[in-house]
Design a binder for these strands. Structure first.
Length: 273
DNA sequence: ATCCAGGAGGCCC
DNA sequence: GGGCCTCATGGA
């Protein structure tokens, strides 16, 4: 058990921010399944309790939650008349950009295309139960590439992958044979990282951007999904403000969370697909 | 029941 | 390079 006070940290908001799919409400708190481990998180007054010792917290979870980054500073970059971002950052205070496992992120966001966050969670949960390791009796690790590369199609189909099934298989095989070396991708410049990821069938600019942002912490990358398209179109006249570009990924996360959870209306916005 | 979802590939021009 | 069309399926 490790207990600590944390600023700008909300496990609930992070769990529902659409960047990760295996932080789930359980009991009075949340359970995080990552790196083959299970971490329980509960709030205790103004502090948080984590179900691990101090050493594990500092070795693994401190980095994962990006706790050495000060998120208060993003309030200072809001442009004078940008009430939308002001609202979004206020509403989403506590969100952080995680540093997730690149392999799990890659497969997760390949699966994510044209799926709701809820449906993505379901697919990844099934995938883990079917091919992952039993960690503690009830939670299963995300399966490694060596397992998925040899997975049977019937099993994969039962995970609800739909037309993304060959994409997942191809990616697993590409990583398994070393065509994609995830350990070394982090050394690449962002544009080269995106290019390399997009060599995979089923990985376009949006999925590559999510992996770059949520696993490789490239905060300048701006993933544009249907929600961000609507936001940019209706709130920013079709162009994401260039003043925000150096950390567009972070600001985008507040906007996405705000729009999705407030279920904003888009007036006459008719953009679809 | 009908529509939507953290999109991408394959055409065609 | 941009404009359409299609893709399988869970969730609301």
């Amino acid at each position: 058990m490790y207990e600590t006070e944390l600023k700008n940290f909300s496990i609930a908001k992070i769990a529902d921010s659409g960047q990760c799919f295996r932080i789930l409400p359980e009991g009075t708190g949340y359970v995080v399944i990552a790196f083959g481990k299970v971490l329980r998180v509960t709030s205790a007054g103004s502090s948080y309790r984590f179900s691990c010792d101090e050493q594990e917290f500092k070795n693994i979870w401190f980095k994962y939650f990006d706790l050495d980054c000060d998120y208060e500073k993003y309030k200072d970059v809001i442009l004078p008349h940008d009430d939308f971002l002001k609202e979004a950052i206020h509403f989403g205070d506590g969100i952080r950009i995680l540093k997730q496992d690149p392999w799990e992120s890659l497969i997760s966001f390949i699966i994510s295309q044209r799926k709701s966050v809820k449906a993505i969670r379901t697919s990844i949960s099934r995938l883990s139960h079917l091919y992952g390791k039993n960690i503690d009796g009830t939670h299963f690790s995300f399966p490694g590439h060596e397992i998925l590369a040899k997975a049977d199609e019937a099993g994969l189909r039962s995970c609800g992958l739909g037309y993304r099934l060959p994409y997942v298989l191809d990616a697993a095989r590409s990583v398994d044979i070393g065509y994609i070396d995830l350990k070394n991708l982090g050394k690449l410049e962002t544009s080269d990282l995106l290019k390399k990821l997009m060599e995979l069938n089923g990985v376009g600019i949006k999925v590559a951007s999510c992996v770059a942002l949520f696993a490789f912490h490239r905060l300048e990358v701006l993933p544009i999904d249907i929600w961000m398209k609507r936001i940019i179109e209706t709130r920013y006249g079709g162009h994401f403000p260039r003043e925000y570009l150096p950390f567009a990924g972070v600001l985008q996360q507040y906007m996405y969370y705000y729009a999705r959870l407030k279920n904003l209306s888009w007036q006459a916005f008719d953009y679809q697909n």
